Computed example of a mutant assay.
Amino acid sequence: MLETKKSAMLVAYAAIGSDERKKKSVVNRLKRHLDAGMEAFNLDEITATAELDPATLLGSLNTLPFGAEKRFVIVNAADRLDMTVKDMLVDYLSNPNSACTLCLLFDSLPKKTLLYKAIASVGPQAIIDCAPKKNRSLVAEVKMFAGARGMYMDDSAIYELIKRSGESGKLLEKQVIQLCTLCRAQGHISYNDVVNNISQTAEIKPWDFLDPICQRNAVAALTQYHLMVNPSQIALLVMLVGRLRELICTQSLMARGQEYVLASTLRKRDFQIDKYKRWVRNFAPGELSRFLQACADCDRDLKSGADPDIRFTQLILQICGAVQQ
């Protein structure tokens, strides 16, 4: 949307999302429209603060370009703008300077706000989506990061990296560069390389918390549980019951010699199925069914007013075998 001719560019754009690589790409594409040697006159790049004076920004927006068709004003971290500045921008966009293009970079901007509506009314391409890619899309991108540096990274390593580092493309690329340096001699990056070298910085996803429970690792399970922000014990319990049922299914199919249908039955990838096979070996026959009953008891207690944190912790310890059943 920014590859068009300068004369056809909109008077305002908003790049919205937490993917810093995408926002940087938007800014770089915008800057390519600057005439060589005129950057000092026709580019004003501002990092927003709560103290930014509305009159200062308005003055920059109303300044005419010098020796060129267009002037560009880029506002980084626009989430920090004071409401008076946002109100000024809404008024400005009702009668903007046609020789100036404004680009606002937001981590988020609700669609119901007046500023979002004012920017969207400028044109159908004024809102630029810079949200992080979903996991499936990220896998291909991370694999590309590694491949560009002559390294191979398998899916299990990529999923673990995303789980630990989050969905920021910029951060993932930095982590891949670090791993490529550490693993250069072996020519590939494995799951264990990620586990041993990348710290957990992203907020724990609820479904990732279930893995150490399946390993019956009480310390890891409680560590990840306490890393979650304001978890819903009821929601976690529902997910835990689902995982226990999957393990019961795995145990049953393995006992009948039908491992070959595990992936299609559980709708999981091969490397995930390998984990399920390992996990079920941690449980004696009939034990998983007893833990389903323990989950039902926990659900009853939670809905009867028991302390949710204490009661759910007791369930974790019970399944991990850290307390007497």
Score class of each variant (00 low, 15 high):
Leu2Cys: 07
Glu3Ser: 13
Lys5His: 08
Lys5Ala: 13
Lys5Met: 08
Lys6Pro: 04
Ser7Thr: 13
Ala8Asn: 12
Ala8Gly: 00
Leu10Met: 06
Leu10Lys: 02
Leu10Glu: 05
Val11Ala: 06
Ala12Arg: 02
Tyr13His: 02
Tyr13Leu: 05
Ala14Trp: 08
Ala15Pro: 01
Ala15Glu: 03
Ile16Asn: 05
Ser18Lys: 14
Asp19Pro: 02
Arg21Cys: 01
Lys22Glu: 00
Lys22Thr: 00
Lys23Pro: 02
Lys23Asn: 05
Val27Gly: 03
Arg32Ser: 09
Arg32Val: 06
His33Lys: 15
His33Gln: 13
Leu34Ala: 08
Asp35His: 10
Asp35Tyr: 09
Asp35Met: 12
Met38His: 07
Glu39Arg: 10
Glu39Gln: 10
Ala40Gly: 04
Phe41Asn: 08
Phe41Arg: 06
Asn42Gln: 14
Asp44Thr: 12
Asp44Asn: 11
Asp44Arg: 07
Asp44Glu: 12
Glu45Trp: 06
Glu45Thr: 03
Ala48Trp: 10
Ala48Met: 10
Thr49Lys: 09
Thr49Ser: 15
Thr49Tyr: 07
Ala50Cys: 00
Glu51His: 11
Leu52His: 11
Gly59Ser: 07
Gly59Lys: 03
Gly59His: 04
Leu61Gly: 00
Asn62Cys: 02
Phe66Thr: 08
Phe66Ile: 09
Gly67Lys: 06
Glu69His: 11
Arg71Leu: 12
Phe72Thr: 02
Phe72Met: 09
Phe72Val: 04
Val75Asn: 10
Val75Arg: 06
Ala78Tyr: 11
Ala78Phe: 12
Ala78Ser: 14
Asp79Asn: 15
Arg80Asp: 13
Arg80Tyr: 05
Leu81Val: 12
Met83Leu: 13
Thr84Ala: 14
Val85Lys: 12
Met88Arg: 12
Leu89Val: 10
Val90Leu: 05
Asp91Gln: 15
Tyr92Phe: 13
Leu93Val: 03
Leu93His: 01
Asn95Ser: 15
Asn95Cys: 11
Pro96Thr: 10
Asn97Cys: 03
Asn97Lys: 01
Asn97Gly: 00
Asn97Ser: 05
Ala99Tyr: 07
Cys100Glu: 03
Cys100Thr: 15
Cys100Asp: 07
Cys100Leu: 06
Thr101Ala: 12
Thr101Ile: 05
Thr101Lys: 09
Cys103Ser: 02
Cys103Met: 15
Leu105His: 07
Asp107His: 14
Ser108Leu: 05
Leu109Pro: 01
Pro110Asn: 11
Pro110Arg: 14
Pro110Cys: 05
Lys111Leu: 03
Lys112Tyr: 11
Thr113Cys: 15
Leu115Met: 13
